[in-house]
């Protein structure tokens, strides 16, 4: 069997997710045993002009140029994987959507902002069809590998649609609310094995919200622990701004 050709691309992002992949270390070599990487800016300088089987796309679509480019990539590949919060839910780039685009352009680029036309931030699936999602900022490598294996086998991968709390409890963490700190775990999609809480941090909501968050229930939680709603909305805004326009 010929090894499937895989190409990595990035749009508006910090390239942190591709760095995660580059950091796979020895496992990267195992991975290279089953796929043929034809383009990957972080680790090689070659560019690939032909078609390929799998496109792995990082970053949000934030301008017309990006929208054109992702459409061309979609035409050249059989399977498209969006990875990282920027690509899957808009992520931190979504914060821009809370401002007037002209204003924010001036703020960032000064008087020459006309030379940098910008659009509302969109996750990749708002522009082209996406076959697989690897949520998270940055991606959680064990999940990335699962998704890649699913894609290579042609079977579906379902991003877990339950709260981070589920995995957090299985990992026996003391709940952040018990420690007097607020956490976005109850409304955020699991799948990261409660990575941040395991390491002493709160959940920042980087994987996006569960499909059916209970807003009233979450308000009850905040009341029970005396957390102001603004504080949570602010934290939520870091990754989940793109959700609001829908």
């Amino acid at each position: 069997m010929k090894k499937p050709k895989v190409a990595f691309f990035d749009f508006t992002c910090c390239e942190g997710c591709q760095l995660q992949v580059a950091n796979l270390g020895e496992e990267l070599l195992d991975l290279l045993g089953v796929i043929d990487v034809v383009e990957f800016r972080e680790v090689m300088s070659e560019k690939w002009e032909g078609d390929f089987d799998v496109a792995i796309v990082e970053g949000s679509i934030t301008d017309a140029h990006g929208a054109e480019r992702i459409k061309k990539i979609r035409e050249r590949c059989k399977v498209l994987i969006a990875y990282g919060s920027c690509a899957t839910i808009g992520g931190v780039n979504g914060m821009k959507n809370g401002f007037d685009l002209g204003e924010i352009g001036k703020y960032v680029y000064g008087s020459s902002y006309h030379f940098f036309p910008t659009e509302e931030t969109r996750p990749v699936h708002d522009v082209v069809k996406v076959d697989y999602f690897v949520n998270g900022c940055p991606i959680y490598l064990p999940e990335f590998k699962e998704v890649l294996k699913a894609a290579l086998q042609g079977i579906p991968y379902h991003v877990p649609d339950y709260a981070v709390c589920v995995e957090c409890r299985l990992n026996e963490n003391v709940c952040m609310y018990e420690k007097g700190v607020s956490c976005l775990g109850p409304v955020t999609r699991g799948g990261c094995n409660s990575w941040c809480v395991n390491n002493g941090n709160i959940c920042y909501g980087c994987r996006g919200m569960v499909s059916n968050p209970n807003q009233k229930g979450m308000k009850d939680v905040l009341t029970r622990y005396n957390v102001p709603l603004d504080q949570i909305m602010n934290k939520m805004g870091m990754y989940n701004r793109c959700r609001e326009k829908k």
Binding site: D30, Q153, Y162, N214
Partner: peptide, 29 residues
């Protein structure tokens, strides 16, 4: 209306036993 579906109640329950079965392939498939 109040449940946030976090699953804590069943995970801490001494009598709950439901599980999901999954397959995990190694990288060489």
């Amino acid at each position: 209306e109040r449940c946030i579906a976090c699953g804590n109640c069943t995970n801490v329950c001494p009598t709950c036993y439901c599980f999901d079965v999954k397959d995990e392939m190694n990288l060489e498939l």
